[in-house]
Design a protein around this nucleic acid. Structure first.
Length: 264
DNA sequence: GCTGCATGATGAA
DNA sequence: TCATCCTGCAGCA
């Protein structure tokens, strides 16, 4: 689930439910028990999203959450809902609404110095309206391929394995190309496309990169499930645009897919 | 019931 | 580059 679009969407929805209200916190699993006790009853002042990181503010206290590969925040309504599972790390609630967190890589109280250090190692986040220059500069300074670099959160924050593949398809760029060899307009296009795709994902609550016409429908809403992406996990299948078989390889320790026809 | 896999990141080697 | 952490679920027997 969680690339940057999910995180920003989560921040927005939680803000709507919880911001400005006195909240209760608990940790059914126990691993966040001490932290939850510190903020139990506190007013949630705000929530910030940066890349794939969430910062819940309770006055002077901040909870840092990173979902990792399979963390989830679930919204549960009603007082008669089933109790949270034993794996629930954190329950953040107001009357009638619970947000239940399970499986995160990080859920911890974080002091300002630690947060500053964390932010310092994140690249610009296109969803946060950040300036592109640090990203563009970083591309010129690395020996790595553009596919590798797009997963590096210190270069661009918020892009994950689905978006890196889909963005490079939409930009028509082979993921194996060295980042330094990209033309200025290609680098700029990657930034712009990443930003618009992440924003669309945040609005829709899911990743849909294909144009309706490429799967033979008229409206975005009619794109069938399973046909929402161009290349991600489609190795061997024909490109939706040119029919060439989708290729795959390892890049930065993860799989990546691309169309050898469209991304020559 | 078991296995394997997943839109992530880190620390050791 | 590898091992490790975190959980849920699809696909199998």
């Amino acid at each position: 689930m969680p690339e940057g679009h999910t995180i920003h969407r989560m921040a927005r929805r939680q803000r709507r439910d919880l911001a400005g209200r006195a909240t209760t916190s608990s940790s059914p699993q126990g691993r966040f028990a001490a932290g939850a006790a510190r903020i139990d009853g506190a007013v949630l002042t705000d929530i910030d999203a940066i890349g794939k990181h969430l910062f819940h503010r309770f006055g002077d206290e901040t909870v840092h959450v990173h979902l990792g590969l399979f963390g989830r925040f679930r919204r549960v309504l009603g007082d008669d809902a089933a109790p949270p599972s034993e794996n629930t790390r954190w329950v953040l609630a107001v009357d009638g609404i619970e947000w239940r967190l399970s499986g995160p890589t990080a859920c911890e109280l974080m002091d300002p110095a630690a947060e500053e250090a964390l932010r310092a190692r994140l690249g610009p986040d296109p969803l946060a309206g950040d300036d592109a220059s640090p990203f563009l500069d970083a591309l010129g300074r690395t020996r790595r391929s553009i596919g590798d670099v797009l997963l590096d959160q210190s270069v661009i924050a918020g892009v994950g394995n689905v978006y890196r593949a889909e963005v490079l398809f939409l930009a028509g760029i082979d993921p194996r190309r060295p980042a330094t060899e990209l033309a200025a307009d290609e680098s700029r296009a990657i930034w712009e496309i990443a930003g618009s795709q992440l924003a669309a994902g945040e609005r829709a609550g899911r990743i849909v990169t294909v144009e309706p016409a490429d799967v033979g429908v008229g409206r975005r809403a009619d794109i069938p499930r399973g046909e929402r992406l161009y290349v991600y996990k489609r190795d061997g299948r024909p490109c939706r645009r040119c029919g060439t078989g989708i290729a795959s390889a390892e890049s930065a320790g993860r799989s990546i897919w691309w169309c050898p026809g469209c991304q020559a």
